[in-house]
Design a protein around this nucleic acid. Structure first.
Lengths: 248, 248
DNA sequence: CGCAGACTTGACCGCGCTCAATGCGAGTGG
DNA sequence: CCACTCGCATTGAGCGCGGTCAAGTCTGCG
């Protein structure tokens, strides 16, 4: 990583995945108790970042992936006209930087949306371990494949869907990801700004504001700043699935 | 795969990757001569499909990836409103179905755009082989990572770029992919219809027609049906990179 | 308190979609 | 050989979603 900015806790060499409440979302579910020790020897945990700090930057040497432990992260790439474009939001239990595994340099930048701590997974060691643990290799292939499907889904969302459909989809996606962590799927705090949302969904900030206001007057959600409550999940789902739009 | 429609040649068990002109684009460049034999024992080549036939369909059991030997393929997914959405075009030397490695079922359908032949890569055998050949494992991680970056780039293209930028980008992408195969990068035949292009780029067919007509009157390209000649590659590149669009 | 950044709201306008008609080439059959 | 069809492609006219521009409000923080 060269210089890590914002590393405020001394990295505790050796993780304790077996005690981590996120272990069922992350890597270790693929390995048994004995192998987990080898995994924990490789993973470094305890790196923390403040809001706005970079975990890594595009075209940094890509030596590690990172698992989010707490907080939230956005990844960004420079698009053809030199602007930053958000390619994903990452919540605890999710892994950043997978696309640059076995790449010389990171394809995107990752920055903390709020105070965030991560575990570092050095890619060379992970590859070595994966060669000796077929189940870990399989798990990695699965993570990478899921990431491909994710970005394809996102591309499809951006391709044809209206502003309302995009925003409803994002809210539902966040909702189900909070649910996976045993948090409320109805009531949560958005970790990102309206501007982040608009950037990610390919909309203008004003459109995000307007659509969320419309959802609110329709009684679908309750929103005050970043505090959101989903009132009518089924109706939101219908909006996201473009109900009532006749298509060939 | 259950039933393979359009399988018109009897599959020759055992491939001959070492004599394949595409081997530098595909898998084997990652392995040495001795290991290539083991690879060739796993790969089945010689499956052919006519225009419109499916190589696999979404939610079929995912037992194999496929490398395109000749012809061209499109992959499609059903979007939220039940329409088919094209997620990618694949030319000789490129691999289809990677996103479903270590998935129970294919996440997309693949169909031939013209007469096409493919090599079949059974995923379970490929995973086994990858465990014993670290360089092959590394190569696979690289392919998967590249696929992620691809769909992210595509999502970015769909997110903010104008119709002209999208179409210029596609033409340049095809051009460079033809060049990799030592074919003309200036003059080529589009394997897909205008409707496929519009679907892939999130535009209406009419818009594709209009933009290509505009490019032609501007002297950037020469196009008659699917025969395309790029006349001003540099200007096209400027269009694709959204030159002249002031952004913060 | 005052400033900056985030968010909202309103007015206007343009890109690209829709609808509709027409052109065109390949394949088919009388 | 022409007539016909069918899929693909092109071209024109009109309009709506969402972008842009411009104020204005809310919130947290030094």
């Amino acid at each position: 990583m060269g210089q890590l900015i914002g590393k405020t806790e001394s990295p505790a060499l050796g993780a304790s995945c077996h005690r981590c409440s996120l272990s069922n979302l992350c890597l270790p579910l693929a390995v048994n108790a004995e192998d987990m020790k080898r995994l924990e020897n490789i993973i470094q945990q305890g790196r923390s970042f403040n809001r706005g700090e970079n975990i890594f930057k595009q075209s940094d040497p890509a030596q590690s992936c990172f698992a989010v432990r707490s907080g939230a992260v956005k990844t960004t790439m420079l698009n053809s006209s030199g602007e930053e474009q958000i390619t994903g939001f990452f919540l605890p239990g999710e892994i950043i930087g997978l696309e640059s595994i076995s790449c010389a340099r990171h394809a995107c930048s990752a920055s903390a949306l709020e105070r965030t701590s991560v575990c570092e997974l050095p890619t060379n060691h992970m590859e070595e371990l994966a060669s000796t643990l077929p189940s870990l290799q399989h798990h990695f292939f699965g993570l990478l494949g899921a990431e491909i499907q994710n970005s394809q889904q996102h591309a499809m969302l951006l391709s044809k869907n209206t502003a309302e459909e995009r925003i409803a989809s994002l809210l539902l996606s966040l909702s189900s990801r909070f649910e996976r962590r045993r948090l409320s799927s109805r009531e949560f705090t958005l970790p990102m700004t309206r501007s982040d949302i608009s950037n990610f969904l390919g909309l203008a900030v004003e459109t995000v504001s307007r659509v969320m206001a419309r959802f609110q007057t329709q009684g679908l959600i309750q929103a005050k700043g970043r505090e959101v409550t989903l009132l009518e999940v089924e109706s939101l789902r219908e909006v996201a699935l473009s109900f009532g739009r006749a298509r060939s």
